[in-house]
Design a protein around this nucleic acid. Sequence first.
DNA 1: AAAGAATGAGACATCAACGTCTCATCTGAT
DNA 2: ATCAGATGAGACGTTGATGTCTCATTCTTT
Lengths: 184, 184
Amino acid sequence: MATDRDSVLEAAVSVLSRRPTAHLDEIARAAGISRATLHRIFPGREALIREVGALGLRKFAAALDSAAIESGDTQSALRRLVDAVVPDAALCAFLAGENQLYDDPEINELWEIQDARVRALFLRGQKEGAFRIELSAGWLSEAFFDLVAGVGWAVQDGRLAPRDGAHSLVELFLGGALRRPDQS
Amino acid sequence: MATDRDSVLEAAVSVLSRRPTAHLDEIARAAGISRATLHRIFPGREALIREVGALGLRKFAAALDSAAIESGDTQSALRRLVDAVVPDAALCAFLAGENQLYDDPEINELWEIQDARVRALFLRGQKEGAFRIELSAGWLSEAFFDLVAGVGWAVQDGRLAPRDGAHSLVELFLGGALRRPDQS
DNA sequence: AAAGAATGAGACATCAACGTCTCATCTGAT
DNA sequence: ATCAGATGAGACGTTGATGTCTCATTCTTT
């Protein structure tokens, strides 16, 4: 039952993250069901979008949990987080693009919680001396999420190999684009 | 005449970059004109969206030109590019979110040209030893644009001060989030 | 095999945004 | 002051997506 709902939601993500205005026909076809059945599972378009958003936030929260970002050294924690979150990067891309979701107070609150956790990770890392302090924890958190979404889009459009997603993300975000001759 | 069109387009960007499905009523109100006049300037919604996209690409191309990314050392070129592009970050955010734009061959070709220029900048920087070679020029280009769009969104939503946009972007993209004790 | 549930296909009404039109009002130039 | 042009406000029909319905078919369970 729940797995059925989730499989439909995953199919919806694959369509909606690319084209947020896709018709229900299209989503139903992507999920391999008819529009009638789609309506039997979700009362309407709005409910479907909300459920996709909620799924995305659940998975993001689960990634934060499984990465145990609140413990251990912060750099390793961030690397674990990337590994945990990249498989669901498409969902993050959806969350990033569907700003209308945050009109819903429940969704918004759930997001605030997760975002605060990420910000806390960066703040802790800054206090420990792992992350740069010239950049605010808020901006680091925001930029991190932007890049996760970017990986999601790039993978989905075939511009980035799924295998490379986590590595490209970590290396750029942590190390930057500049080569450091004095480092190696 | 042209300034009038452009002022309407700028108003449209401020609305559409945040909510791509905004009604024409809303856009007209944001531009300070009536829906009738909006229709007199642009034949329809589709044309309006296309024009906004074209404006964004023109401004992006102008930023690449004014930054002279094809000459000089690549790191400085990138810094100049950031300074030139951040004021129009909202337009880039719109371009990033409106994937449907790229169905239009003219828009798509224009984008390909600019994207190739950015990729060439990174490739040149890699050959010159300024940029890391473990990350593909394509990914660097993609991530750069993601962050520019992120700055646009963050500034528009008040999460990032406009003054900080360029600095935050350059520092994170070039230097990464990691602090380097052996550097300073 | 038979009964029940679930699904797909399609028809149908509804509704909101869009595009077009008209007319009154305002502005600006002569 | 007058006239031409532009604008705003609003009405109107059209269109397309949505939500609901029915019915035939398929799958499941016993």
